[in-house]
């Protein structure tokens, strides 16, 4: 594990190394790959709120604006040449059509002047109509493979889908946070969407991806990202 640092807003951002590629782990839950200037996020779940509304549960209709707002901050910080969304960017197939005008405009503004890639997810297997960008099932970024669902035995893979969170206990107190799950060969990114829940990395779903004891959870604090090895992680 390499603990080098990039300076941003006086905060130390750690670097996760995957298959020899150094990635900046941002406290907001995104990865930045400096050599190709790519910003990578997973599981935006845009329009999850309106998806629930169709079933009579009127969640505040501001999740898309919130998620795009956080993304805008990151883009402002890193000025990436490319933004890659690792699938489940939209909560359902009809979600792109439900985007309101203001959100559509801010999305277009974010895409302006850079490459934008929608990797397909299980919630959004089709390219999102009218939402710009390029759609791919899987993509490569140098030595890295980027896809939605993590695959067993992959080397140099960045994926989402599982919404990892980690739980620790320190001095009798417990914290549960979104996290990057990694073993040096792959990273599963935390869900970025405002309404996306989480799954504990001690769940069996992670057990089939990571060699026993090899998983490190990079937990998102308020100010920094902290690496916790397997033996410090607790089940729910």
């Amino acid at each position: 594990m390499i603990l080098s640092a990039v300076l941003r807003r006086d905060i130390v951002e750690p670097t996760i190394s995957v298959a020899g590629v150094a990635l900046v782990a941002d406290v907001a839950g995104a990865l930045y790959e400096p050599s190709s200037s790519a910003l990578i996020v997973a599981d935006l779940h845009l329009e999850k709120g309106s998806s629930y509304a169709r079933r009579g549960q009127f969640l505040p209709p501001y999740d898309t604006a919130t998620t795009l707002g956080r993304l805008a901050q990151l883009i402002d910080t890193y000025r990436p040449r490319a933004v890659i969304a690792l699938g489940d960017s939209f909560h359902d197939r009809a979600a792109p059509a439900r985007l309101n005008e203001a959100d559509r405009v801010s999305l277009a503004a974010l895409q302006n002047g850079r490459d934008w890639i929608w990797v397909a997810g299980n919630h959004d297997p089709e390219p999102p109509a009218g939402c710009g960008g390029e759609s791919l099932a899987v993509m490569s970024l140098g030595a890295l493979t980027l896809r939605h669902e993590p695959s067993a035995g992959a080397q140099g893979e960045l994926a989402g889908h599982l919404h990892p969170v980690a739980k620790i206990e320190v001095r009798g107190r417990r914290l549960r946070r979104r996290c990057f799950a990694t073993d040096g060969a792959r990273v599963v990114l935390p869900a970025f969407g405002a309404y996306a829940g989480g799954l504990n990395v001690r769940d069996a779903a992670f057990g089939s991806l990571f060699r026993p004891g090899a998983l490190t959870a990079w937990m998102l604090g308020e100010e920094g990202v902290y690496a916790i090895p397997t033996h410090g992680l607790r089940p729910d």
Partner: peptide, 9 residues
């Protein structure tokens, strides 16, 4: 909370 996370790490 961040102090604790740091300490744990």
């Amino acid at each position: 909370q961040d102090m604790l996370l740091k300490e744990a790490a």
